[in-house]
Amino acid sequence: MLRFALGRLLQAIPVLLVVITMTFLLVHSAPGGPFSADKAVPAEVLEALEAQYNLDQPLWQQYISYLGDVVRGDMGPSFKYPGRSVNELILSGLGTTAELGLYAMMVAVFIGVIAGVTASMRPNTMQDYVPMTAAMIGICMPSFLLGPLLVLVFGIHLEWLPVSGWNQIPGDKILPAITLGTGYAAYIARLSRGGMLEVLSQDYIRTARAKGLSEFLIIGKHALRGGLIPVVAFLGPAFAGLLGGSFVVETIYQIPGLGRFYVQAAFNRDYTMILGTTVFFATLIIVFNLLSDMLAVWLNPKLRQQVRGV
């Protein structure tokens, strides 16, 4: 398993290199430098600033030196927030975003799996239609629409829950987590229903039933493992999606997380910040894809042994 993980990590290096190169080139081909917005800056100050950030060197030199920095784990200084490094900025937002993502993932997996498994137990009955209709609504109600609507209903009309901030008033984490998690819960519900239906039609489920096992054991022990493999495989992409969703949710609820930093950095043309966050996000996504792959392999004894047998 360790070798499998290491092998996959090695494969990730070229991917990361592509990400860094593409982002670097994209950012540097942008019209308008990071300081062009501040019109008041005199020419000599601008030059000094550009020299300070190595922007006067040829592109390839900037690229090489940036690569070297990244390998050492240094994302460079921020253009927009003088005196603060990108590392600091990322770290300051990371905790919040990670917490939000964790809650959203919990919402997605728990609600999604329970709804999907429930639906699969009695297909084409009310027990199927109700959760699946809810899931369809969840898919057709994107976070940027669901969020404001939740704010409108629970925050402004009913005044049950706070509508902005993070970690300031008790309960201010509920709406963001639901907003971010619902779409994925819906997706996971559909995936787990499909996976479970597939497995429940297998011969070995009939065998388990013929042995006199209880429905609970048949579902929980014999069907769930195979039925949830599609869900496990989806966790990696879901994580990437959650990161993207955090841009919206953090904007709606004014949460000081990485997502909002990224959107702001994009608007401000904060080169190093964009580069840094992109590289950071890419690394995270690759790591999570790896984890979800490993989980899928571990769940399947045949694959597990092939991996171990090397």
Binding site: D203, Y204, A210
Partner: peptide, 29 residues
């Protein structure tokens, strides 16, 4: 099902659960 009437199926390749050890499946009843 568990004590009096047992059944053997046609396709042994698909009638055993691939995710659970043979022994575990054997002792379940």
């Amino acid at each position: 099902r568990s004590n009096d009437i047992a059944m053997i199926f046609q396709d042994p390749m698909t009638s055993l659960n691939p995710f659970i050890t043979v022994g575990e499946q054997l002792i379940e009843p």
